[in-house]
Design a protein around this nucleic acid. Structure first.
Lengths: 193, 193
DNA sequence: CCATAAATTGACTGACCACTCAGTCAGCCT
DNA sequence: AGGCTGACTGAGTGGTCAGTCAATTTATGG
């Protein structure tokens, strides 16, 4: 029973990820994906009913990897500010280390394929919980969650995009400065040394 | 002599903007653009040599409109913090008011058509000058310009994207809160009531 | 060792694509 | 008037696309 022998399926997903990141969904033909994966063009449609279904499956795949990485960089026992820094820096590092996955997710998020409800990395994630908890404790500004998320995720995505699209080098100190600035922007103004 | 009678050319650019924002470059056929513009399919290729050239011309068009709006919301005589708030809030308002232009520019920025040098709204813009001046005066953190831009533009883009992709309502107080948080994030930490 | 099923192949199909081009037509100059 | 020009038309062209399917190879179990 098991499921489809996974080797060629994964090879297809991997090839699709790289090509979608480089040339977009519509700019990448199924024939090319198959060729890059080293399988015949028909095999793609044995493992996935359509190109769209392949894209959706790839998204679930990537999302799962991101969430796994996120859980690993989540320091649940630290105080909130450190938990924020650890989690958001972890996410940024993941995107910097996996530019193809980042570009794919951004593209999916933008595309009409992305059903309104399945957010790429925000909704239902522990990151939103951190922001909500910090707001409740008065650590961060009493603003709508949409604003807090924009301030927390925006710079992170901007930096990852710059790195993914232009190969701009981003070193560890820039990551730290960016995450620190996000936290400074979120904080309620009570003075801070 | 003038140039091509502008009526149909502009009609094509306008139709292309809407369709590209909805369905992407590759997902929008030239035949559909012509149909929506109310002209024959061949007319597109009379005004533009290729689909790519149409996209580039549209980008120049949109960029010019954004820069014109930016110049209008630039209060050169105010002190730096107010100048920052005015300029960045102006840009955010423009994107909220023109979601199709925002989606198009984001897409162009991402695409292989976008030559490395022509940045959508950042490079050579007065906004970068504001950040550089503020850093020189010690008003904002002494971080690489890339980090400052990520912190300043990131939340703005995140909010505009949320509004453009999901029709999430964004009111004036959210704009103010977001811009204020960006400035707080940028500031060097010397205390701030 | 064979039978059956599962996985894989690649030639094929009809739809759609960007782009072409021979020709129409309105306006303008003389 | 009549010829000229340049904006405009839309049927046509070669090529590419997602998806199909009959044939073939590979795995499984009796």
């Amino acid at each position: 029973m098991s499921r489809h022998s996974p080797a060629k399926r994964e090879s297809l997903l991997h090839a699709a990820l790289e090509l979608f990141a480089e040339q977009g969904f519509a700019g990448t033909s199924t024939a090319l994906i198959a060729k890059k994966a080293g399988v015949a063009s028909g095999t793609l449609f044995f493992h996935f009913n359509s190109k769209d279904e392949l894209i959706h499956a790839l998204f679930q795949d990537v999302r799962a990897r991101i969430e796994a990485h996120l859980r690993a960089s989540l320091a649940a026992d630290l105080p909130l500010p450190e938990r924020f820094a650890s989690a958001f820096a972890g996410l940024l590092h993941y995107f910097l280390d996996h530019p193809a996955e980042f570009k794919f997710v951004e593209q999916y998020h933008f595309s009409p394929l992305c059903a309104r409800q399945d957010e790429p990395y925000r909704d239902h994630s522990p990151l939103r919980a951190i922001l909500l908890a910090a707001r409740e404790k008065g650590l961060v500004k009493d603003a709508p969650i949409l604003v807090l998320e924009a301030v927390a995720f925006g710079p992170l995505v901007a930096l990852a995009k710059e790195h993914a699209n232009r190969q701009t080098p981003v070193d560890e100190s820039m990551v730290r400065q960016t995450i620190a600035a996000c936290w400074d922007g979120l904080q309620s103004r009570h003075c801070a040394v």
